[in-house]
Computed example of a mutant assay.
Amino acid sequence: MLNSIIGKDKAAAMEKEAKELMKKAKGLTAPSLLELRFKPDWEAAAPMLDKAALLYKQVGNIDKALEAYERAALAQERLGSQWHAAKHYEVIADLSRQQNRPKDTAKFYKMAADYYLECGKPTTAGEVLTRGARVLEESDPEEAVRLYYDALDVYESSERESYGVDAFRAAISFLVRLERWADAVEAQMRFGAVSDKVGARNTQNKAYLGAVVTWLWAGDAEAAWSTFQDAMAVESFANSEEAFAADALFEAYRRKDEAAISSLVKSKALYKQLDHHVARLAVRLPAPSSKVRRMGRKLKRLMADTDPAAEEEGEEGEEGEGYGGEEGEEDGGGAGGEDALL
């Protein structure tokens, strides 16, 4: 298509020029006794390689453009210009994406980020990794996840957490879409911790509430309660509206009251204000696949361990309710069984 836009003759001339530049640059990077050159002349070769790469890209010869950009990046490395090498690797990553080469795309985005780190640009490195993760979400989810984690690590290790908000949110949304619940919760708890570090209390509280919601949607009452207890150790969360909202949600689950759960998440604006994909889970609680009765029994025991009053109430409730009868109702099917709720 590019050839037809540029014109066949002009495209041919551009390719010929690019080929000649590549040949000259190759000669400059090889020792020559005739020219009394005993080491590669990267300084002279670099602009030739840059121009050749651009010409190949402009005429749509992606394979040749990739070769030229890689040699141009190498030239910049040899010259000690990590910034320009990183810029070239970004272009190579994008060209690899156009060629549907996800592994190469991930590799070159990572190389670009590494060179940005070398020249003291951690924020740019994090942005590049996040951008790479986003473009790989459909074609290679596993590589996308790895790049997201690399981006989060860069922001945290360089103490540039305040610049990593978009990366955290994108990673959390993607992990939720993949239904990788444990990873999504881990990312939310990390987001909460870095938000605390930069004084973003509202963001922190929403991240912790979102982590609880994620585990409840996944049907893991014990993990949800454990996560909540970890978050409650943070004073600013313990006194927040989000903490009270989570506590009310646990109480509704403890009572095994699906109508109360649904009413609660629909009536409280806090649940709708969570990050987009987590909010979508919240307002649809309880999850159709979750075992609400089983979760309720588990929470009754867990909550009793932290609340003497709840323990006394739980013992009285268990005497009248009887575990055997409820298990039979849930596992045996019938109109009142769990399957009837799906």
Rank of each mutant, 00 (worst) to 15 (best):
R101W: 02
V59N: 00
R71K: 15
P31V: 13
K26R: 09
L79E: 11
A52R: 01
D41F: 04
Y109K: 00
R101Y: 03
L36V: 06
I62D: 13
K26S: 07
L66N: 12
L79Q: 09
D41E: 09
P47M: 03
R78H: 13
W42N: 02
D104T: 02
T29N: 08
L34D: 12
Q82I: 14
R78M: 05
P40C: 11
I62P: 10
A86L: 09
Y89G: 02
V91E: 01
R97D: 06
A93Y: 04
K64S: 13
K87V: 07
M48D: 04
R97I: 07
A73C: 14
A65K: 09
L33E: 14
A73D: 09
E90F: 04
Q58A: 03
H84S: 06
Y109I: 00
A53S: 10
R37Y: 05
D41G: 06
A46P: 03
A73W: 09
E77M: 09
R71M: 15
G60I: 11
E43Y: 05
K107Y: 04
K51S: 02
W42Y: 07
R71H: 15
T105M: 03
R97K: 10
E35I: 15
Q98N: 04
D41W: 03
A73S: 14
D104C: 00
P47R: 02
L34W: 10
Q98C: 02
A44P: 08
K103G: 01
E70D: 14
R101L: 04
Q99E: 07
A86Q: 07
W83T: 12
A86D: 05
L36C: 10
S32I: 08
Q58V: 01
K51Y: 01
H88L: 05
K57W: 06
P40N: 10
D94Q: 13
L66F: 09
R97C: 07
P31K: 15
R97M: 08
R37W: 05
A86R: 04
W42H: 04
G80E: 11
W83C: 12
I92V: 08
D94E: 13
L34F: 11
K57S: 11
Y89V: 01
A93G: 05
A46V: 07
W83F: 14
N61L: 13
L54R: 02
Q82M: 15
N61W: 08
L79Y: 10
E43D: 14
A45F: 02
G27H: 12
L49D: 00
G60D: 10
V59I: 05
N100C: 06
